[in-house]
Design a protein around this nucleic acid. Structure first.
Length: 474
RNA sequence: GGUCCCGUCGUCCAGAGGCCUAGGACGCCGGCCUUUCAAGCCGGAAACGCCGGUUCGAAUCCGGUCGGGACUGCCA
């Protein structure tokens, strides 16, 4: 039997990391087993679903590198991958469930049901005890599933093992609303049956809903898929990762300068590991080793610091040309304009030094703005720490003078000449170079100085040394 | 309140009765390297929630307890 899995995001927002991780695990399982990965749009919440979000989610999936199987997803074997296009099908199933006695119309008003719920809670019982089929027969209203009370609902979860629910703890839930729109439970389950989904891997938050889905599946006369309930993701504060947190959608990560490979790798590690020793691995390696049964049961806390570290690892390992390609937009963003050809090649000269120092793409831009814009403001802390010491003006003056005589303007030549100068002046290298760094780059933190000067150019380097010196001497 | 799930370093993961004086990674601390910052290298602190039981032997199995979480909608 071919493995067929799916991810069914609701287009009510951007792709959330929790959903992305669920998508990732489904994708891995499909690819690991030569199966099919389907993307479906669970847009039965008509109030909040939009086409823009739907496209955005697909884009994020592509960005992460999770390719889905088009022919069966979009306009697949049973029509559309979009639930809102399949309402007739869900109504048809609801009707069939009524005919077979598995479901019934319920006309009771909302306030009456609410009263039942409160009574149940007061008595410490599940609402299922009360929200049961009324004796009367109706032919309109919501449609509820009638929960068979004869046996517990048991299933074997790939991650959690055997899970069991007593039928009296499951209430007669709504499958079709008054307006004829199916609820999530119905639509999702019918789709899983119609699409021949073999494995349902989803968040653990849906574990309590699983008996409902099993009952619908049985009511349709179909066999149940294998369930695998993934551990939930929590934020750094130990609470469920919410959309209120800063970066929880994939687009946020992309915009912040994260690499899809790093995000992919990191997400894999949230609830799974390749062998307990290896931290950095490729998609192919993950696919080769992945099994849903190996996924951890524990909820995982999303750790932005580790992701950031990992992003740095991927940036450093990247092909230099690729790094330049990716980072130039961020450089231009930091500089505030596009770079011309000459500037571009100057950046390329120094980019390998920037690459080592970058964890997030935008940081690369910040590191090199001094090359392309004049320094109109020195970093205050750097200035206070470095420039207010005795003898700084003399060092700057001497450096300016000495560099002015240099005939070969290369990092090596600059280094040689400056080292010699400082030796003559009997000033330590560290102490002597820092003022020059601040003068030339505007900060005490920068890419390596000699290379920076080399790329900046002789004229500008000397001018900046002079400017800083004159600020000191008044 | 009820139902269900979960419980190894601060965090993620390894561990499927003896290989565990519990391993790897991030972070943290210290050192080396060094023109700053990174990177790199070396070293360190840091965990089996608790109580019983099974067993020659338990992080691993069982029970209880405590703690955390999810669900409890005509939201998904």
């Amino acid at each position: 039997m071919t493995v067929r899995v799916r991810i069914a995001p609701s287009p009510t927002g951007n792709l959330h990391v929790g959903t992305a991780r669920a998508a990732l695990f489904n994708w891995l399982y499909a690819r690991a087993n030569g199966g099919v990965f389907i993307v479906r749009s669970d847009d039965t919440d008509q109030e909040r679903s939009t086409a823009e979000y739907e496209e955005g989610i697909l884009e994020s999936l592509r960005w992460l590198g999770l390719d889905w199987d088009e022919g069966v997803s979009v306009g697949g074997p049973h029509g559309s991958y979009r639930q809102s296009d399949r309402y007739e099908r869900y109504r048809e199933v609801a009707r069939q469930l009524i005919e077979s006695g598995a479901a019934y119309y319920d006309q009771r008003p909302a306030d009456e049901l609410e009263a039942l719920r409160q009574q149940a809670q007061k008595e410490g019982k599940h609402p299922g005890h009360y929200i049961r089929r009324p004796d009367q027969e109706f032919d309109s209203g919501v449609i509820r599933l009638s929960i068979p009370q004869d046996a517990p609902i048991v299933f074997d979860d790939m991650i959690r093992g055997s899970v069991s629910f007593e039928p009296r703890d499951v209430d007669d839930f709504v499958i079709l609303r008054t307006d004829g729109i199916p609820t999530y439970h119905l639509a999702s389950t019918v789709d899983d049956v119609d699409y021949g989904i073999t494995h349902v891997a989803r968040g653990e938050d849906l574990l309590p809903s699983t008996p409902k889905h099993i009952l619908i599946t049985r009511g349709m006369g179909a066999g149940e898929p294998v369930y695998a309930h993934l551990p939930l993701l929590f934020g750094t504060d130990g609470k469920k990762l919410s959309k209120r947190d800063d970066a929880t959608s994939l687009t946020d990560f992309r915009d912040a300068g994260y690499l899809p490979d790093a995000v992919f790798n990191y997400l894999c590690l949230l609830g799974w590991s390749i062998d307990g020793e290896t931290t950095i691995f490729s998609r192919d390696e993950a696919v080769a080793a992945f099994d849903l049964a190996d996924v951890s049961k524990n909820p995982a806390t999303f750790d932005p610091e580790k992701l950031e570290w990992m992003n740095g690892e991927y940036i450093r390992a990247m092909d230099p040309a690729r790094f330049i390609e990716l980072v130039v937009p961020f450089v231009e963003d930091a500089v505030g304009r596009e770079l011309d050809g000459a500037e571009l090649s100057r950046f390329e000269e120094i980019s390998h030094l920037v690459q080592e120092r970058t964890k997030l793409l935008p940081e690369a831009g910040e590191q090199v703005t001094f090359l392309f814009t004049e320094i109109d403001e020195y970093d205050q802390k750097s200035w206070d720490k470095v420039m207010t010491k005795d003898g700084v003006a003399d060092v700057l003056a001497a450096a300016s003078q000495r560099l002015g005589t240099l005939e070969t303007w290369t990092a090596e030549a600059i280094e040689e000449s400056l080292r010699a100068l400082l030796a003559e002046m009997e000033i330590g290298v560290g102490k002597g170079l820092q003022p020059m760094r601040v003068a030339v780059t505007g900060s005490s933190v920068s890419p390596p100085l000699f290379e920076s000067m080399a790329v900046l150019g002789q004229e500008k380097t000397i001018a900046r040394l002079d400017t800083a010196r004159s600020l000191l001497t008044g």
